[in-house]
């Protein structure tokens, strides 16, 4: 299955509005209109409308956020990466462009890599000079008691044409996953990249670290045995970030 979805958000006089929205199964976008966000952000939910990604699937979401606009893009349910009937892995790609003065928060639900899946996940964000970004990724390696398939993930952030972060990760084989110099046997790997108005000092605790990047912005990395523990470690990293309270809460 090949899917191409697209979302364009622009700033109106006093709030952000959706200018273009193209869902393409299994990527379905739902703008939420129930109440106005205090931040003036437009809220869109990303819903997986079919069992996906399966081996052979190729899913792409393009997001554009205009100058001064603010988007909160949320997931609604965990994504299960599954093997397909045909050979070949699946690929999911999200590309986000944020113009100068725009803000994007991308908070999808966890991705679970099931046994024999072969999935490639890419998130590429290109930001203008004074754009702001928060994006989270939670990878769960196998359902409970299950050995995971293979997942390669890539997170790339560029601001004003300069790379801030290129963070690739390959689940590789079980011996490498168990190495304390690689993944330390963790079942859950969670990251949150925040590029906001101020950058934090480095801070770390049991199973997590908040790390300022060389070119600006920061990355929180968490290793945990389960999603709940990973979520509370990410919350502690947010508390240590000077802009942590300006970010939208994760459960919404």
């Amino acid at each position: 299955m090949r899917s191409r979805a697209r979302l364009v958000v622009e700033a109106d006089e006093r709030r952000s509005v959706v200018r273009e929205l193209r869902s393409h199964a299994p990527l379905t976008l739902f703008p939420r209109r129930r109440r106005e966000e205090p931040s003036g952000a437009v809220v869109v939910h990303l819903v997986g409308s079919a069992t996906s990604p399966l081996g052979g699937d190729d899913l792409e979401l393009d997001v554009h956020v205009g100058p001064g606009a603010r988007l909160l893009l949320r997931g609604t349910a965990a994504t299960l990466a599954l093997p397909g009937h045909r050979p070949g892995g699946s690929r999911g790609s999200v590309r986000i462009e944020v113009a100068d003065g725009g803000t994007v928060e991308y908070l999808p639900e966890p991705t679970v890599v099931t046994s024999r899946a072969e999935h490639e996940a890419e998130l590429a964000v290109r930001m203008g000079e004074h754009a702001r970004l928060c994006c989270r990724e939670v990878l769960v390696l196998g359902r409970s008691g299950e050995r995971p398939g293979r997942l390669r993930s890539r997170l790339e952030l560029e601001r004003a044409g300069t790379a801030l972060l290129r963070n690739g990760f390959d689940t590789a084989d079980s011996r490498l996953r168990d190495s304390h110099a690689y993944l330390g046997g963790a079942r859950v790997l969670a990251t949150e990249a925040v590029v906001w108005d101020r950058d934090p000092a480095e801070c770390s605790g049991d199973g997590w670290a908040l790390m300022p990047l060389a070119g600006g912005g920061a990355l929180s990395t968490v290793l945990a045995g389960d999603v709940v523990t990973a979520g509370s470690a990410l919350a502690r990293a947010r508390e240590a970030h000077p802009c942590g309270t300006e970010l939208s809460p994760v459960a919404g």
Binding site: A181, L183, T191
Partner: peptide, 20 residues
Amino acid sequence: AELPSTGAPALDLLAQAHRK
């Protein structure tokens, strides 16, 4: 810009804890 990236999150956490 196209050179591979090969992250090792557990080593990142060890390095940060060591410095602390």
